[in-house]
């Protein structure tokens, strides 16, 4: 089974990379952009019988830093 884990900064946590990209997009002439937030995606290939608790554990212990980041797990196939 494939897991896709989306990691994003929590709302309210400054995202300097997003801000720089926002600025660069405007520099290229794109208008109407209200906000840019940059995150990270981790894809894992795992055994089909993996428990949800183990997935949560992996996210909390390593993949995301829950002080500043949220994560969302998607079971792809």
């Amino acid at each position: 089974m494939k897991l896709r884990i989306q990691i994003s900064r929590k709302p309210g946590v400054l995202d300097p990379e997003g801000r720089a990209v926002h600025h660069a997009l405007e520099g290229l002439g794109f208008s109407g952009i209200q906000d840019v937030r940059i995150g990270r995606m981790v894809e894992l290939q795992v055994a089909d019988d993996i428990s949800d608790a183990a997935i949560e554990d992996m996210c909390r212990k390593l993949l995301a830093n829950t002080v500043i980041e949220n994560y969302r797990v998607e079971k792809v196939a």
Partner: peptide, 11 residues
Amino acid sequence: LPGALMRNKNM
């Protein structure tokens, strides 16, 4: 220690 160290504000 608490907290986190993120990318510098000015990049």
